[in-house]
Nucleic acid binder design. Structure first.
Lengths: 199, 199
DNA sequence: AAACCGACCGAGCGTTCACTCGGGAAATTG
DNA sequence: CAATTTCCCGAGTGAACGCTCGGTCGGTTT
């Protein structure tokens, strides 16, 4: 582990927990065991640190999705969608710092003025959405999913996961205990009748 | 409109758009047409300004829900739930500053250490959740809604709305165009079969 | 009229923080 | 080995900002 990587990892954790503005360079330096000057040797400025941390998170998230979804085989489309949902829940624990970083408002605010940031954020979201869409269109062909709009349904289900996960993060409701209920709700959205809904 | 109210309104808009840390007292003062000292005459400190703005938002939101849901009569439970969903979408435009303020991370972070803030945030969320729960249990009695867990389903649907609304706010997807698709998905969650799903 | 009081003002203070800079140590190159 | 580059350090700087404080002004009370 090089010092530069160490800085990025510390920055990820601190930005994720305290936000961009509430995280000082000196705090990152202390956490990474580096001097303040060292950070500005490796990165242009504080914003660059955030961007590089977000890029690192993008790599980790995409790799995880590739490994746990894209390289796996699913019996049918519905199961693939459920696989994506499951991966998202798992990643919220395995890569909690990285997802928290993505959820920070600074990511979106920076994305609206910085092209590099926008593509990074979009890439992460599309990674999930594409996998979800692929599962839905596969399911529409093999009959496990009803005739719904692929892209719209993907956005709705993904938005639902995001909203519920944020409830968990923000300590509003312990949504993790609702995993099976959420899966059930997603099945209802994807299948029209109750006949196909079973555990 | 007193100067104090003016300050709270300006604070709401600035906190909502820029966040707590990125909003300076001087900016609020300038926007409200007041001097910095005046703000500290009416409020203990910057955090107090935020808290009072959040409390003001709570009042506005609860009044709106009371007026548009609790005082209205619905033909059945399902329609009441759809009414709550509709109100939530409407409020995201009518009271956009107030909802944005609630969505700011500072609200949750402050809520975890400040009792007054926590009850304020909880009150706002419970306002929607209670209305939703009431609609669901009513629907289970009149037959318009299937036999689902009232509280769990309320959280899931509300979480879905929250997640999708944030997609809109964060400029990830223009979710407002999906209103009818979202309603349709909620109906599927609330009713087991496709027989009851119709526009 | 005198005393009082709340609303309001804005200069000033102390702190925090992003960023610079000059320099040292280690690695790389010729 | 000398020269050069890379990595790393931490004191110093200037700007931003939360908050204090002494003061003015208009209305109310005695």
């Amino acid at each position: 582990m090089t010092l530069k990587q160490n800085i990025l990892e510390s920055a990820t954790q601190l930005f994720a927990t305290n936000g961009f503005r509430n995280t000082s360079i000196s705090a990152i330096a202390k956490s990474a065991g580096a001097a303040e000057g060292t950070i500005f040797h490796h990165f242009k400025n504080k914003e660059d640190v955030f961007l590089c941390a977000l890029n690192r998170a993008k790599g980790l998230i995409i790799d995880a999705v590739d490994e746990q979804v894209n390289s796996r085989h699913f019996a049918n489309g519905l199961q693939m969608v459920e696989g994506v949902i499951n991966v998202y829940f798992c990643l919220s624990e395995q890569l909690s710092w990285e997802l928290l970083l993505l959820f920070r408002s600074h990511s979106y605010e920076l994305a609206s003025v910085n092209d590099a940031c926008r593509t990074t954020v979009e890439t992460i979201y599309n990674c999930f959405l594409n996998a979800m869409s692929e599962g839905i269109s596969m399911g529409k062909e093999d009959g496990s999913i009803a005739d719904v709009s692929t892209s719209k349904t993907a956005v709705i289900i993904f938005g639902m996961l995001n909203g519920l996960l944020r409830f968990d993060i923000d300590n509003i409701f312990p949504v993790h205990t609702l995993y099976f209920d959420i899966l059930q709700s997603c099945r209802k959205i994807l299948t029209n009748g109750s006949d196909e809904v079973q555990i």
